[in-house]
Computed example of a mutant assay.
Amino acid sequence: MSDVGMKNSRPLSPHIQIYKPIFTMIMSILHRITGGALYFGTILVAWWLVAAAAGPAYFDFVNAIYGSILGRLVLFGFTWALLHHMLGGLRHFIWDMGHGFGPEAREWLARATLAGSVSLTVLLWIIGYAVR
């Protein structure tokens, strides 16, 4: 039994000051952030679809906003968030299948998720501009 009268100097629960940030932890946090960002991106997609249904004038207005430098930057970020969240989901699916739990495998999957999301985003945008 613990001594009730003793003052405990340890925290009652783990806190961010105790944990050393490791790459897989950062990727987990980033996965949650990109999931939240996808809500905002879905609103942008819905606005674009509503503009398409509203008529050519409003559709041109929305396309002008999305075609601006700031609009393209937001769409680039949405593309990256979508791909990063998807690859993070595949990483979790691999874990759900019972694989990739070793330290090297976890680290490799986390790095592959980041590298893959950045690479696929750039590749997708290059293809998009080439087709356009």
Rank of each mutant, 00 (worst) to 15 (best):
G102F: 02
W80I: 10
A105P: 09
I26L: 03
H85N: 08
A112I: 02
G55W: 01
K20E: 11
L49Q: 14
D3P: 06
I127T: 11
A54H: 04
H92T: 04
S2C: 05
A115M: 11
V131A: 05
K20D: 07
L75C: 12
L70G: 06
H15I: 12
V118Y: 07
T24P: 01
V50Y: 15
V118G: 04
H92Y: 08
L114H: 07
P14G: 05
V118K: 04
S68F: 12
S2E: 12
P56S: 15
T24M: 01
W47E: 09
H15W: 12
S68D: 11
V122Y: 11
R106Q: 13
S13Q: 12
G102I: 04
L30D: 05
T121G: 01
V118S: 03
G128W: 05
L120V: 11
I16H: 04
I94C: 02
T79R: 06
L83F: 06
G100N: 02
F40I: 12
H92A: 06
A110Q: 02
G100I: 01
I65A: 15
I127H: 09
P56D: 14
L70N: 04
S9A: 13
A54L: 08
M1C: 10
L49F: 15
I126F: 15
A112Y: 01
M97Y: 09
S119R: 03
G67C: 03
S2T: 09
L30A: 15
L44C: 11
L124G: 13
T113C: 12
V50A: 13
A110D: 02
E104W: 10
N8C: 04
M86T: 14
R111V: 06
S28A: 06
A51I: 06
I94V: 08
E107A: 14
Y66I: 10
G88T: 00
M1H: 10
W47Y: 11
A112K: 04
H99T: 10
H84P: 00
A37K: 05
G55I: 01
W48R: 13
V74N: 09
L75I: 14
L30S: 10
G102W: 02
E107I: 03
P21W: 00
F59R: 09
Y66P: 02
Q17W: 15
K20G: 08
N63H: 07
D96C: 06
L30H: 06
I126K: 05
F40D: 03
L75M: 13
P56N: 11
G71D: 05
M86D: 10
